[in-house]
């Protein structure tokens, strides 16, 4: 490779690298593969999507792009579909919290004294959903929740309850998709919390106990503050990616229906883009989503810096 020429410069002696006066090509050569990939496939498309959000276009290379200014944005903001999708996005995210943060946190603290060989068996088992492909998870749950023959509905029937059209009933479909998304995460989150909980310096807990603190006080005043970095990390992940994670399930299982009840913002982008080929709308909605989530992300990162109690 061609970096040898550039590398020759600093090999003279113990001379510190930063002192090199001239532009050093070597780092750029090493960076090139990753940097070019990320710029070409993430940042340039982002800029292009921003431009496209001001045009009307149907993605056919032969048809012209027509500049429409802010019309796409203005149109979207008045569209009930968009409002419903944004509301659903919020529901997806809030609905995921119990399964990605609250229950795992409670289970991790509750089971912290678990020892012995079973510990590893549980670890191994509860992690499995994380590595199962989303498409497989979708298909398996579609079978388990099938209205006529699915095991869950057969069980409901046996218990004398009504069968539920988990994916057909607009009242249940969204909750069902949240459940499947959460099913993939719950074990992983639990393990993450367990590891964080176990790494808390035991002398803190001991000291508090000597002072007569109850178990609840120890959890509230010691464990939760020391777990706050993990809590914030998982909360941030849930907020930023929760709606994205459910995309596959929406696409495979409901197509956004019934009655658009499961369409979130990311599915709407897909629907506008590759369903109705309205590139302008899709790009404009994408820009709105990107701006929103970026603001949330920076807010979360600041919160993480400020609120975390670090164990030093």
């Amino acid at each position: 490779m061609s970096e040898t020429r550039a590398v020759k410069l600093p090999t003279g002696g113990i001379r510190a690298l930063p002192a090199l006066p001239r532009l050093n090509l070597a780092p750029w050569l090493y960076l090139a593969p990753a940097l070019i990939t990320i710029v070409v496939w993430t940042y340039l498309p982002l800029i292009e999507a921003f431009q496209l959000s001001f045009y009307q276009w149907n993605m056919l290379p032969t048809s012209p792009k027509r500049f429409v200014g802010l019309a796409n944005y203005a149109h979207l903001l008045t569209l009930p579909e968009m409002h419903a999708a944004l509301a659903n996005t919020a529901i997806y995210i809030l609905g995921l919290f119990p399964m990605s943060v609250i229950i795992p946190l409670a289970v991790a603290i509750f089971t912290q004294d678990l020892k012995g060989p079973m510990r590893n068996v549980y670890r191994t088992l509860i992690f499995v959903p994380m590595i199962i492909a989303p498409v497989v998870a979708a298909i398996v749950w579609r079978w388990l929740l099938n209205e006529d023959h699915g095991l869950v509905n057969v069980a409901l029937d046996t218990l004398g309850l009504h069968r539920i059209g988990f994916l057909q009933d607009p009242n249940f479909a969204l909750a069902t998709l949240i459940w499947i998304t959460g099913w993939k995460l719950i074990g992983f989150s639990t393990l993450l919390f367990s590891a964080a909980n176990a790494s808390i310096n035991p002398s803190y807990v001991e000291a508090a106990r000597m002072d007569g603190a109850s178990r609840c006080q120890i959890i509230r005043d010691i464990r939760l503050p020391l777990l706050s970095p993990t809590i914030l990390l998982l909360s941030m992940m849930t907020v930023l990616f929760g709606a994205q994670w459910s995309f596959t399930y929406i696409n495979v299982l409901t197509g956004g229906g019934p009655l658009k009840s499961t369409t979130n913002i990311f599915y709407l982008l897909w629907d506008y883009g590759f369903g109705s080929l309205s590139v302008g709308w899709s790009s404009a909605a994408g820009m709105i989503a990107f701006a929103g989530f970026t603001m949330i992300a920076f807010f979360c990162l600041r919160l993480m810096k400020r609120c975390s109690v670090y164990d030093n």
Partner: peptide, 14 residues
């Protein structure tokens, strides 16, 4: 931070 759904159209065209 950039959701793939936001860049999918330019990516597809490219």
């Amino acid at each position: 931070l950039v959701p793939f759904q936001v860049t999918m159209i330019p990516n597809y065209v490219l």
